[in-house]
Design a protein around this nucleic acid. Structure first.
Length: 529
RNA sequence: GGCCCCGUCGUCUAGCGGUCUAGGACAUCGGCCUUUCACGCCGGUAACACGGGUUCGAUUCCCGUCGGGGUCACCA
């Protein structure tokens, strides 16, 4: 038997981290067994523009590499994959349920039904619907219809015994049938509800493993009932614990995402993303640009495999030490048996740690390819000719391990701007260029060395600096800090020889000249103001 | 409230009766390395919710308490 799993998103307009984890586990299960992963759209209750609300979700899956074998855009033997287009199929199954007596038409109006329900609640009795409005004869039914009554279809649930099934992560489950009300499966207008649609689709699409979040556990008995009433084999069920908010045990909720920004770690991640988004001109509201949503990571430049690696471990582990997984590793090692039963809270810092690890595993060329679109979108480079690629390559090589996400390249604007535009950080400028009395002198002398340097390779530059220090009888520190501020405008950055090398002789000379002018201006009382 | 689920360092987790003075990772705190920053390396702080059983022996099994959470729609 080949394994067929599915993920059934509602077209909500966004994909959040918890949903991705569920999808990942489904995808892994299918991929590791040569089975199929199916995307089915739960839009039975849908609003108008399903396509628009679905686009970001499909884009998220594509970006993450979670490809689907059947579903929107790719089609498949069981099309359509939109529940809104499967109404006829559902109605056919409802008829079967009606014919077999597993369901009935209920002609009560909702007030009448609710009245019974609240009466039971007030009496603190378990609620059993009287089924008073279930017709016992065609004449009675015709009479009600003549009165203008309409009917919903309800499941005729058992009122004794237990519903038993095995859950692959939670073990043997048992629920009292008596506690299950007669759920509505079809509205008076003929449209069908989730529980019915879901089961019918799982049957029709031949789903073998229903892996979903635990909030569906309580739906399972009524679904089991439908499967059984239809004589369909039960799929394997696996209910995953929910993903909790950062720093809490509460379930991650789409509605509360703006509030998560108060969490400190979360906020830090959010703000670093904000800086990157600003360079890219991406619109950011707490509801649309939020570390709970997958789009955030795509915008900022996280590696998909890092996100997947983190999510894999949020509720699953292989053993006591393995943490780093490539996609292939994940496919090979995943198992439902080792899924954790308790909820796990989302930790942005650990996600970022994985991002760094996966980035470090990439070659300089691979990192260049990732970073290039960011520079282009920010408008800092034009085109991607050999010269530009070479320039970017040098910067990326020098940045080395400081690059955690692709968007981090945007912290190095100084290497992608005209010399005359280079801003000097005021504090760094004061400390390194104005306060040390000899800074200007050393800098102008060093410029002469740069002009005359025979070899601009890192090794050549290092010996250049050494001979400079020897000649002027100073420690390297005394020139290095001033030099970095003059060249980059900042007090921190990567190695000074890399900095010189990346900029090249001409730009170094220009920037030193410009810095010297600013020092002179600052020193004269009649200066800037 | 009914039903159901869960409970090991701040966080993610290992642990399926003795190997646990409880291991790893992230975070955090020291130190080293170093021309800044980062990386890297070394080290530290930090957990079995509580109470009863069962057992020669419980983090591990059972019960209870407490705590947290999910779910109770003509939503999905």
């Amino acid at each position: 038997m080949t394994i067929r799993t599915r993920f059934a998103p509602s077209p909500t307009g966004y994909l959040h981290i918890g949903g991705v984890r569920t999808a990942l586990y489904n995808w892994l299960l299918a991929r590791q067994s040569g089975g199929q992963f199916i995307l089915r759209i739960d839009d039975t209750d849908a609003q108008r523009n399903v396509a628009a609300a679905l686009a970001p979700i499909l884009a998220g899956f594509r970006w993450l590499g979670l490809d689907w074998d059947e579903g929107p855009e790719v089609g498949g033997p069981h099309a359509p994959y939109y529940q809104s287009e499967r109404g006829d199929i559902y109605r056919r199954y409802v008829q079967r349920l009606l014919d077999s007596g597993a369901a009935y038409r209920d002609y009560s109006n909702s007030e009448e039904y609710q009245a019974e329900r609240t009466a039971a609640e007030q009496a603190k009795q378990p609620f059993w619907y009287s089924r008073r409005w279930m017709a016992t004869s065609p004449e009675q039914e015709a009479g009600w219809i003549a009165e203008g009554r309409t009917a919903v279809v309800r499941l005729k649930m058992p009122r004794e015994g237990r519903c038993e099934f095995t859950d692959l992560v939670r073990g043997d489950m048992a629920f009292d049938w008596a506690l299950e009300p007669d759920h509505v499966i079809q509205r008076a207008d003929g449209s069908c509800l989730y529980n019915l649609a879901s089961v019918v689709d799982d049957i029709e699409l031949e789903i073998t493993h229903v892996v979903r979040s635990i909030e569906h556990l309580s739906n399972t008995p009524r679904q089991v009932f439908i499967f059984q009433a239809l004589d369909a084999p039960l799929p394997h069920f696996a209910h995953l614990p929910y993903v909790a908010e950062p720093g809490s045990q509460n379930k991650l909720s789409k509605r509360k995402i703006a509030g998560y920004l108060k969490n400190l770690d979360f906020k830090r991640l959010y703000e670093s993303g904000l800086a990157i988004a600003a360079h890219l001109g991406v619109e950011t509201t707490p509801e649309s640009f939020n570390p709970v949503l997958i789009e955030f990571y795509q915008t900022v430049g996280y590696l998909p495999e890092a996100i997947l690696n983190y999510l894999l471990l949020l509720g699953w582990s292989l053993d006591d030490k393995t943490e780093y997984f490539t996609i292939d590793d994940m496919v090979r090692s995943f198992s439902l048996e080792r899924v954790i039963k308790s909820p796990a809270s989302f930790d942005p810092q650990k996600l970022t740690a994985f991002a760094g690890q996966h980035m470090a595993a990439l070659s300089v060329d691979q990192r260049c390819a990732l970073v290039l679109p960011f520079l282009q979108r920010a408008g800092w480079i034009r085109g991607d000719g050999a010269e530009i690629r070479d320039q970017v390559r040098q910067v990326v090589a020098a940045i080395d391990q400081r690059l955690v996400v692709a968007g981090d390249i945007l912290n190095y604007r100084e290497f992608f701007m005209p010399d005359t535009d280079l801003p000097l950080d005021p504090a760094a400028f004061q400390k390194r260029l104005v306060q040390p009395a000899d800074a200007a002198h050393l800098l102008s002398e060093f410029k002469k060395f740069v002009v005359a340097a025979p070899d601009f390779s890192p090794a050549g530059l290092e010996s250049l600096l050494q001979s400079f220090c020897d000649q002027f009888q100073i420690q390297p520190n005394q020139i290095i800090h001033a030099l970095r501020v003059a060249l980059t405008g900042k007090s921190t950055g990567f190695g000074i020889f890399d900095t010189l090398g990346v900029l090249g002789r001409e730009r170094c000379v220009n920037r030193i000249d410009l810095a010297l002018q600013k020092i002179a201006t600052a020193a004269s009382p009649a200066g800037e103001h």
